[in-house]
Design a protein around this nucleic acid. Structure first.
Lengths: 122, 122
DNA sequence: ATAACTCCTTACAATTTTGTAAGTTTTGGC
DNA sequence: GCCAAAACTTACAAAATTGTAAGGAGTTAT
């Protein structure tokens, strides 16, 4: 998957290591993670299929991957109910919860700027 | 460059359009932008070469590209001094400045979590 | 016996991002 | 004339991310 000797990888490490923002972006960057996190923040707990249906456009492969990474980074917990058919729920960890104000500010800034840009475009 | 009919592109648009956070991440995401912005925030104004030297690892091609995009998104201003050899300075726009608290929070959260993770790893 | 359900996996392909190396431009100093 | 300086461009290549399509496991409903 990832080549640990590519400049690409080295640069990522460097940035993640000495810049708080780089670190943050590494965790929540990419196309889907912010949305997933945001959905879970709002509802408290969500099943795989619920997230999939909420983020229109995401494929199951992508969702599974993103969830894996978020779990790996300890931002969410994965709770498996041994039922058939299976049920799996995702919730924020303590660390995930601690992101909430930051996520909110990012979301709000985005909405504000978005609105301004739309107005300016008219 | 970008295929406007790829699912990839459509998904990006979708997310950017209906989620403030997606919008925000679209502007400051990626490997370099946050660092560039942060450097400019700290110093007020920076030359191309100063940014290049500050972000160890970035190539000139990457820096030029990122600066282009940041300018396009109206987060920074590009000021050209018609001298030889040329001098170009970059500063935040009003919009760029408005990101400051958000960037700060992202940076702080990152530093905090980073520290915690390091401690936990020992 | 077959289908259905949920939450994934796998193999593969397309797209996008990132990086490398080498120019280019303009003018002034040697 | 030749080189240097700063800020890019260009052509190319590597790597990473994202997407498509299909399958699988294990039980219960039909």
């Amino acid at each position: 998957m990832r080549k640990k000797n590519s400049t690409n990888w080295i640069n990522e490490k460097k940035i993640t290591a000495n810049c708080g923002m780089g670190y943050t972006l590494n965790l929540i960057g990419g196309r889907w993670k912010a949305g997933i996190l945001w959905a879970i923040v709002e509802k408290g707990t969500l099943r795989f299929s619920e997230i999939r249906d909420q983020l229109s456009g995401i494929s199951e492969r992508m969702l599974a991957k993103q969830l894996d990474e978020l779990e790996e980074d300890e931002l969410i917990n994965r709770i498996v109910y041994p039922e058939v058919p299976p049920r799996v729920e995702y919730e924020l960890t303590k660390l995930g919860v601690s992101m909430r104000p930051m996520l909110q500010q990012m979301s709000e800034w985005g909405e504000m700027h978005q609105k301004q840009t739309e107005e300016a475009a008219q």
